[in-house]
Amino acid sequence: MSDVQVSQIANQPSMSLLKLTPTQRMVREAWSSVAFRAGFIVFVLLLFGALVYPEFSSVDPTKMNVRSRLIPPLFMGEGWTWAHPLGTDQLGRDLFLRCLVGLRYSVFIGCATVVLMFFVGCGLGLLSGFKGGLTDTIIMRITDAQLSIPMIILAITILGVSRPTAPAIILVLGLAGWPLYARVARSAALAEKGKEYIKGERVLGASDTRIILKFLAPAILPPIAFVAVLDVASIMIFESILGFIGLGIQPPTPTFGNIIADGRKYLINAWWIATMPGMFLLITLTGLNLMGSAMENARNRVLKGAA
């Protein structure tokens, strides 16, 4: 570690980097990668479209229009029009608009779930790593148990018997997804708790809660939060799977899952109803994942002291 710092001091331009916190250096490092910027632009554009366009559009995503049903997407087959860039479905609803509205729900559920997972998982992980002993054993065995049931079984079991609303979906996915965060936070807490400053605080008589909240959490959580972006993307896929099985937010509200499930029935004469929303989701998620992976790389480089 120390020779890295020496080489940075010897290197004039990186002097300013030393003043930055690790988190700031990670952000800087991530932003310098092409993948991050490309992903950022794609994702932000689509998200902006999702937030703004449905408000200003004169069309309603659930309004049916028999005269404009089964219009193919741009340049694909007969009768396409600029008014419906991704085409329309069997009821004449505009697919582009439906995708944008679906994206709203998807991003909202993705972010809210990850926040929940993050707090539950990291909270238990910090406690487990810091306390050790019996607390640690109990929390870790529960974590193992939770990890060994596939999230999807848990989610469909609970959502299958209760009404699948947005809060229910967030709660179920969040509570099914916390264990990985708990493990990461625990191992980071274990490494951190032996350090001098934590021992010092303890000698000064700080309570466990105070040490965890004031010192452990700020030191440990930012690098973990950094890769949470990847989980937002995977939760968005989960949300669409639930919608596809019929256990997501219910129609007429459009979600990627229920649009694709709907379109599957019309594959033979209107392939685009199922294909286009998936393509839309794929592009959004690729943007998000490019950002997330670039951030993960940046974090690894910073933690190794290479940047």
Binding site: A35, A233, F256, L285, T286, L290
Partner: peptide, 26 residues
């Protein structure tokens, strides 16, 4: 590898299944 990994992880499996079935079977 980085880019293809990012695309693969973004592919919703149920959708890929539908598209491939449509393509290869039908």
């Amino acid at each position: 590898a980085f880019f293809s990994g990012s695309v693969f992880v973004s592919l919703p499996n149920f959708w890929l299944g539908i598209v491939l079935a449509q393509l290869f079977s039908i």
